[in-house]
Simulated assay, not measured.
Amino acid sequence: MKINRIITIIMVLLQREKISGKELAEKLNVSLRTIYRDIQVIEGAGIPIITYQGSAGGISILKNYKISKGLFTKEDVIVLLKGLNLLSSPILNEDENVRTLEKIKSLLSKHDLNQVRNDLSQLTVDLSPWLSKQNINNKISIIKEAINKQLRLSCEYIKLKNKQDSRLIESYKLIFKEKEWYLQAFCLSRNDFRLFKLSKMSNIKITNTKFIKQTTPDALSSFEKDMEKRVFKIKLLIDNSILERILDYCDEQDLHKLNDKQYIVDFNFIDDDYSYGILMSFGHQCICLEPEYVRKEMIERTKKLINSYKKNDNLFLSNYYLK
């Protein structure tokens, strides 16, 4: 990870009088060109770098230089540490995270470090789900390797209406959006960039075929524009017993108290199976008031659910108890 590598370079340069670019590249397992790009970033941050030519040459920080408060203040370091806490799992593995955290902490005095620890204790980020689900961490690990090595991935992907097909893709960026992980990738079969939901990806394998990176479009802009066009408000009548759950999907300003037991809710809705599934998950404590066609569709879906239970009830129970 770039921030991890740059901090490592700064720490090495502060501890050693001089080091060659080749040695840095070997230590960090990157190209010499990458090292010199990182050195430019460090210089841009205000750290005075000196390079020496020839066989005894190398890279060093100006003698007696110390990191000034103008470069990394205590507040800056807190931001860095909080950011790493946000990325602690599953983007960074445990070893990477511990090493980077310790390097950043070394920029602080003992007194300031205690204050930072108190500040960090007020924030906990855990991206894992409450209930157990498929191993997203393993998928992310494979995808990260493919991104770093610029190797194509093959996978199976479930499309709309549960149709599954094989995809060959070039991975660019992992994205965490609204409780779900996505991958921005160039799809060879569609000849275009796509967002792939990790939960719908299976049998992910790294191929031996390298790819040349293209200029990537904004990962979410087209998706968000499409969503904005599809979203509209519906009115719900809800029981106050599901108020807490409703707030997972809307804001307090969308709630209008009707009486001590009921609320009218202006609810963001998209006319698809996913949104109807959300409404049905609220059970009888939620009724759609308008528009009329959404209300009728909810009635039809409820009827189908009841009929499905009635139709299969006796057959299912008899077969179940015969096992």
Rank of each mutant, 00 (worst) to 15 (best):
E156L: 14
Y157S: 00
Y157E: 02
Y157Q: 03
I158Q: 13
K159W: 07
L160R: 11
L160Y: 13
L160N: 12
K161E: 15
K163T: 14
D165S: 14
D165E: 15
D165W: 01
S166T: 12
S166I: 13
S166V: 11
L168K: 15
L168D: 08
L168A: 07
I169W: 01
I169A: 03
L174T: 06
L174P: 05
I175Y: 03
F176A: 04
F176M: 01
K177Y: 15
K179R: 12
E180N: 13
W181R: 02
W181S: 00
Y182C: 06
Y182H: 11
L183Y: 04
L183A: 07
L183Q: 03
Q184N: 09
A185V: 04
A185C: 08
A185R: 07
F186Q: 04
C187D: 15
S189F: 10
S189M: 11
S189W: 05
R190D: 12
R190Q: 13
R190T: 04
D192P: 02
F193W: 05
F193E: 07
F193H: 05
R194E: 06
L195Q: 11
L195V: 04
L195T: 02
K197A: 15
K197C: 07
K197Y: 10
S199C: 05
S199M: 06
K200C: 08
M201P: 03
M201C: 08
M201E: 00
N203H: 10
N203F: 08
I204Q: 03
I204R: 04
K205W: 01
I206Q: 08
I206D: 02
I206K: 12
T207A: 07
T207W: 06
T207Y: 07
T207H: 06
T209S: 10
K210H: 14
K210I: 08
K210E: 11
K210M: 09
F211C: 02
F211Q: 04
I212E: 14
K213N: 11
T216E: 14
T216A: 12
P217I: 09
P217G: 06
D218T: 06
D218V: 00
S221H: 09
S222M: 10
S222H: 09
F223Y: 14
E224W: 08
E224N: 14
K225E: 10
K225A: 10
K225R: 11
D226H: 08
M227H: 06
E228Q: 12
K229Y: 02
K229H: 07
K229E: 12
K229D: 08
K229I: 01
R230W: 01
F232A: 05
F232V: 04
F232D: 02
K233V: 08
I234N: 07
I234P: 02
K235H: 14
K235A: 02
K235G: 00
L236G: 05
L236D: 00
L237V: 06
L237E: 10
I238K: 03
I238M: 03
D239N: 15
D239H: 12
D239S: 15
N240Y: 08
N240R: 13
N240K: 15
S241P: 00
S241T: 14
S241A: 12
S241D: 11
S241M: 08
I242G: 02
E244P: 00
E244Q: 13
R245Y: 09
R245E: 15
I246S: 02
L247E: 02
L247K: 13
L247H: 03
